[in-house]
Design a protein around this nucleic acid. Structure first.
Length: 793
DNA sequence: GAGTTTGAAACT
DNA sequence: CAGTTTCAAACTC
């Protein structure tokens, strides 16, 4: 979509840098180096057009409204919205998802107005009412005890959010899954109420801010104090910086000091994130968290929205409209694009609604992931880069990777791209925190990250720090496209690293691997006239929608794993070793299904009845039903793998990876499958790129899936759908089945798909994590993500 | 690295 | 739905 905002993007940035204040700040803050970068990204992200309809799916809207209404309760009972609110409570997860979506929608709606530069904000659309500004929220999680117990609860995470449009400053506490946050809600509510009161009363922003400061918590103990210091003491370089920036940004628009303060907060948050590794994931995580925290959100939300609606007069909260502010906020959010995220979340939420607690915790983790992507992972300048590109579209897929799986290798690239994934992931992650000790490692980087994030904030931090560097290195190092590819292949080979070389498709067609995988193109890509970038988010989303409308499964994994899922196949399907089948089957004529031209082969699955290939010699299984030993072996291996404890699996994967690294020969993809498959030599060996896939498979989000699928054995990735997990809350180990049983949302999608043939749950492949999945499990995982888009259509 | 082959995706 | 074209990956040299 063409939003006016884009234009603004560049400007703000320049302003900041040019401004004396900026310089001053730079001199003061240690963060300098990162800052510049960070800011840039932020703006760029901001520039992104509002999310498309994706988020707007009808489903969401309904839920959203209900929630929003609630919010109003506090602020303005009289309003109709409030009425609604009273009515239903959606599960926290759902709410969160909805909120997220709404925010997106709101943006779109609001953006135009904003772009005009008008101060007055128009709630014109219903959406505006609901606007929640998760994205922009600055969130600092603090595990530190320092946090004010009363408000945050010792363990609870406090987050300060600024709504985009509504822009109220909403501090809310989040509970981390890990931490018992049973009490957190109470705290959160309190906080929210407090905020609301303030707003209502007179918008005592200062007090709010101070409160917020208290609330703000950094993951790192140190961070907390620092943050507080910032908030309270303008002396802090960061704070100063933010403060200084805010005025500039708002410039004319800003009338109230309050607004300025808000901005400051935001800005500080951003910077903080940048600097503080611990906070890296803050934004994304926050979003998710917010989503998860229904109750919290509701409470918090009330203030901002109610004010807007109630008062069209600009309240401090409304500063949203101001271009500068918007940009900032957006920037924060946009980093995490999510095509699928929204969908994924939705699904997950829907399913999981009940298990809010778990979800919440998970979400937190996931969020973290997002943050990573969004924020420069490392203080080091390089990290910033990674972030930029990434924001991840289809995080879903990646995100999906269950926490369970820890991937050894992650491809930083993928990671970046799919930032959004985390969101979805978050939902999905089992409460356990992914913990499974063993979670399988996926080969896919994204999955790893997700997992890491999910599992432990700490781990995440590590990964983030590491990964970014990794990415940066790769990106910088690679010169030619091909080289880049090769590198990726060799290095991680994970899907995450997908790169394309599109010249005419603008990376907006399925021809583009990146696009097909649901990830943004990044530096390694040698594509021309690429529109598959965060900057063109709107376009990308719109295109995706279009494609999905044409074929709901277009972004679903091509390889479906479980034989179960595909009864249609009948004998063959069951016969196939992998139990995985290509969604639609191939149509090879000259390659005999022995080359990667063949999608089945590429995916590491045998050809099935659905295939129209000629002279099929697919090593993984011929159309006629004959199988090759390798496949069988693979299956067995997979089964074994499943049996193994997660930990073991994880180790194995690691080992495998090592092995692979050591021996280039091994074709085995890094993906989790490898573990099981190690023994078998995959055809892929040629390039090492294992089936690309691996990485993303997680993707639950629709798009993300592809990769994994391609890999072929997608199983690995299967991250299984977090969604599924969430929904069922099934034990990690059991994930695979979940898919089957539940009727995961994904199914719905499947059915829709035109390709009725094998539509079965594309996701299935990934579904079960390597360990868990027995080999044949179906996985719907990916499906969920897709739906998001589809429904909207 | 350039050119060819291949088959999916897109189009008609 | 089938046929054709377009496209980019996979492959070869």
């Amino acid at each position: 979509m063409d939003t006016p905002e884009r234009n603004q993007i560049g400007t703000p940035k320049a302003k900041f840098e040019d401004s004396p204040v900026f310089n001053y700040i730079n001199s003061l803050s240690p963060i300098k180096p990162v800052k510049s970068v960070h800011i840039t990204q932020t703006f760029s992200s901001l520039s992104f057009a509002s999310l498309p309809s994706v988020f707007t799916s009808p489903h969401v809207s309904a839920h959203k409204e209900s929630r929003f209404l609630r919010r109003h309760n506090t602020s303005d009972p009289s309003k109709p919205e409030s009425t609604l609110a009273s009515g239903n409570k959606v599960s926290a997860n759902e709410d969160a998802a909805q909120l997220y979506i709404n925010s997106e929608e709101l943006r779109e709606d609001c953006v135009p107005g904003v772009s005009t530069g008008e101060d007055s904000v128009e709630p014109s659309s219903e959406h505006s009412k609901f606007v929640i500004e998760l994205p922009r929220n600055l969130k600092y999680d603090c595990g530190s005890p320092d946090c004010d117990p009363t408000r945050c609860g010792t363990e609870a995470h406090c987050e300060l959010e600024v709504a985009d449009l509504s822009a109220p400053l909403v501090p809310y506490v989040q509970k981390t899954s890990e931490e018992g946050s049973s009490n957190d809600e109470g705290h959160l509510q309190i906080i929210c109420q407090t905020v609301q009161r303030k707003e209502v009363t007179g918008c005592d922003w200062e007090s709010l801010i101070s409160d917020a400061a208290d609330l703000l918590i950094f993951d790192s103990p140190n961070g907390t104090e620092a943050f507080k210091g910032l908030m309270q003491n303008s002396l802090d370089p960061v704070t100063r910086f933010c403060t200084s920036l805010a005025p500039q940004l708002t410039q004319n628009d800003v009338n109230d000091e309050q607004n300025v303060q808000v901005l400051d907060i935001v800005g500080s948050g951003g910077q903080l994130e940048t600097e503080d590794p611990s906070s890296q994931y803050g934004e994304a995580s926050q979003l998710e968290r917010t989503e998860q925290m229904e109750g919290h959100l509701n409470h918090c939300m009330v203030s901002s929205q109610s004010e807007k609606e109630d008062n069209k007069v600009e309240t401090p909260m409304q500063f949203n409209c101001k271009p500068a502010v918007l940009n900032l906020q957006r920037g924060l959010r946009r980093r995490c694009l999510d095509f699928e995220m929204a969908g994924a979340r939705r699904k997950s939420l829907d399913n999981v609604s009940n298990s809010s607690s778990n979800m919440l915790s998970q979400s937190d983790e996931k969020i973290t992931t997002n943050d990573k992507q969004l924020v420069p992972m490392k203080p080091g300048g390089e990290s910033s880069r990674c972030i930029l590109p990434g924001i991840g579209l289809h995080l879903n897929a990646l995100a999906k990777t269950s926490k369970d799986y820890k991937i050894i290798k992650c491809e930083s690239l993928a990671y970046d791209r799919q930032l959004s994934l985390p969101n979805s992931t978050a939902d999905i992650h089992s409460p356990t925190g992914g913990q499974g000790p063993g979670h399988e490692s996926f080969s896919s980087a994204s999955s790893e990250r997700d997992m890491d994030v999910a599992e432990n904030g700490v781990q995440l931090a590590h990964d983030a720090s590491q990964e970014p560097a990794f990415l940066a290195n790769e990106e910088f190092n690679q010169n030619s496209p091909k080289k880049k590819r090769r590198r990726f292949e060799h290095a991680g080979e994970t899907e995450s690293c997908k790169r394309c070389n599109c010249k005419k498709s603008k990376c907006l067609k399925l021809y583009c691997e990146c696009f097909a995988a649901g990830v943004y193109c990044i530096e390694p890509c040698s594509c021309q006239e690429c529109f598959n970038k965060p900057i063109h988010e709107d376009t990308v989303l719109a295109t995706r929608k279009q494609i999905e409308s044409r074929n709901p499964l277009a972004f679903a994994p091509k390889v479906i794993r479980s034989s179960d899922s595909v009864p249609e196949l009948g004998e063959e399907s069951s016969k196939t070793p992998a139990s995985a089948r290509h969604k639609r089957g191939c149509n090879c004529k000259k390659s005999s299904c022995l080359k990667k031209y063949c999608e089945c082969y590429q995916g590491g699955v045998g050809c099935s009845i659905s295939c129209r290939c000629e002279g099929c010699k697919n090593a993984f299984g011929r159309k006629d039903g004959s199988f090759i030993g390798t496949e069988a072996e693979l299956d067995e291996e997979e089964a074994e793998a499943c049996e193994k404890s997660v930990a073991e699996k994880h180790q194995q994967k690691i080992e495998i990876q090592k092995n692979e690294e050591q021996r280039p020969d091994s074709a085995l993809p890094t993906t989790p499958l490898r573990l099981s498959r190690q023994m078998v030599s995959l055809p892929f060996s040629s390039k090492n790129k294992p089936p690309r896939s691996s990485v993303f498979s997680i993707g639950g989000s629709s798009s993300g899936l592809y990769t994994s699928q391609k890999l072929g054995k997608p199983n690995i990735l299967r991250p299984e759908s977090k969604f599924e997990r969430h929904s069922q809350t099934v034990p990690e180990d059991e994930m695979p089945e979940i898919l089957q049983g539940d009727g995961s949302p994904s199914t719905g999608v499947k059915t829709a798909s035109p390709n009725s043939k094998r539509v079965c749950p594309p996701n299935s492949d990934f579904g079960p994590s390597p360990g868990r999945r027995t080999g044949r499990k179906l996985i719907l995982q990916s499906i969920p993500s897709f739906p998001s888009l589809t429904p909207q259509h």
